[in-house]
Amino acid sequence: MNEDGMYCIDGGRPFVERLTEMASDAMAVVAWGACASWGCVQAAKPNPTHAVPIDKVIRNKPIVKVPGCPPIAEVMTGVITYVTMFGRLPDLDRQGRPKMFYSQRIHDKCYRRPHFDAGQFVEEWDDEGARKGFCLYKMGCKGPTTYNACSTTRWNGGVSFPIQSGHGCIGCSEDGFWDKGSFYDRLTGINAFGIERNADQIGLAAAGIVVAGIAVHAGITAVRQLTTKPKDTIKTIASEPTDKNAG
């Protein structure tokens, strides 16, 4: 938001003005992606443009956060159809994320979890363990602290998800994931059996942090006049509405 918002210009004016105008007649705003939800990559330290998430710009509306870089397409569709179909906003967790997709960790539903529990880890890229599909915890997997649906819903029509294709989770739906050390640093403070408690503490701590970072990059959806005209209720500023990211 430095330079009066002129790092992102739309029609000769700061994009942020457009954002506020669009949201003014909305009943709720859906923050698509890690950018709108947390600020994401442009808000990573030292955040040169002073990017902030949507809830730092729009303060008088309910905000539904659908984080992820990007979020899973099926999850985005799910959130929108939930609102149009049931005529209400989904249940949200403390951080404003729909519980139906964000209440469990990648680790909770990861198919490599038995290897974690058995202490069978990938020790090096493409080692014997990697070829056998062992747990990626030692390669820096952030699955134990990341709340998202990847390990269940998977990606692009259920074809795979990062861990299935051999790379640890980088935690791209978590607030400030860019600034939590290298993607290959091992998570600390997570014991094989104490994990429930530890991860919950992490969740609590994250909820208490003032979200520091916006979100001109991804998109928002303003949900308006919800009860009267369901067909016209959705106003979307999507990252890629009709094309490349939609798949």
């Binding site: 990007p70 692009n156 029509g157 998800f161 861990i163 294709s165 051999g166 790379h167 094309d243 798949g247």
Partner: peptide
């Protein structure tokens, strides 16, 4: 276009923004 990105999903775990690795590729 939803079909072709599956190549990224298989070798890189997701699309958009599949995973890469210095020294090779993450998939074994």
């Amino acid at each position: 276009q939803k079909e072709i990105v599956k190549i990224h999903t298989i070798y890189g775990g997701k699309n958009p923004h599949p995973n890469w690795l210095v020294g090779g590729v993450p998939c074994s």
